[in-house]
Amino acid sequence: MQAPVDPILHVKQIMMTFGGLTALMDVGFNVPRGIIKAVIGPNGAGKTTLFNVITGYHRPTEGSVHFEGRQIQHLKTHRIARLGMSRTFQTVELFGNMTVLENVMVGRHHHLPGSLLSCGLKLPHVRRAEQHAREHAMAILEFIRLADKAFEPAHSLGLGEQKVLEIGRALATDPKMVCLDEPAGGLNETESGQLSELICAVKDRGITVLLVEHDMKVVMNISDEILVLNYGQKIAEGTPRQIQHHPKVVEAYLGGDADVA
């Protein structure tokens, strides 16, 4: 694999330990701008931990993360989000008692005036911005095909719709890159097919996608590049074709639940 020009994300020799447990060891890779890159690996391989490091939920024990040329591993989550990197969660983290529309509108938060004074006085510019955010959020709901559920509470959605809504909410922040943690987890075949289409549509919008996924059909169909983790270490990296036949990958998955071929 040749070194990509201008990677949007550059992860350098990450080490992450929790007490005595080493969850990530010397993990380094690039994500070229505008592609879909998948991170796969058996359960407990460190995929979610890697996402948590990249998006600021964990501070790495060693190593650095560079987003658009800027070091971010010391920044807080919301700062990283404001730079243009949002994410979804493996265990759905929606705002359950809020409506579908409101969930997406929270994603507009840092594009809106938020001081208590201007909000409490309902100043004209707050009202205008709020109206604008509502329209923007509705457009996103059209895009993810949830517009007809806009005013339903998020907890009333099915799992498939909840996963899609999480993606929509992440898109509302105007990200340059999104990290999706097992978006197809728990979905049936039709749903995961639709999800693959949605992820490709996100890529077509020019948004880089980093994807953790166990569903190999989804991964092999839509990924441009794949990174394989096992026991916290990178064991392979390359195109779907290269990965499918990589001896170490086949070995790591032997006896595992996923079918690499």
Partner: peptide, 20 residues
Amino acid sequence: SPAGRALRALHTSEAACGAM
């Protein structure tokens, strides 16, 4: 308002709020 919405949101998930 936007501030109130964010408040109600953080009640449910601070983690998700950060990502927003």
